[in-house]
Amino acid sequence: MTATRVQVVVNGQPESFPADTTLGALISRLRPSRTGIAVAVGDDVVPRAEWDDRPLRHGDQIEILTAVQGG
């Protein structure tokens, strides 16, 4: 069981994904677009160029941040 699924938290919500899921695949599943967002894992923003090479790890605290334009 634990070998095939990885448990993470996305914007405060527990989520479960197949063990080989990358951060990029998670974004594609949860957001309609890859632009205008930043993704932090723990206390670090992961540059977009690294999303597809970063596998999800058990317990990752993921925060998808949306760019806002207001001022």
């Binding site: 632009t35 205008g36 806002v68």
Partner: peptide, 15 residues
């Protein structure tokens, strides 16, 4: 480096 591109037009509302 944080936001390489803006969101698609109309996706994020203004104030």
């Amino acid at each position: 480096c944080l936001y390489p591109e803006p969101p698609p037009p109309g996706m994020v509302p203004s104030c």
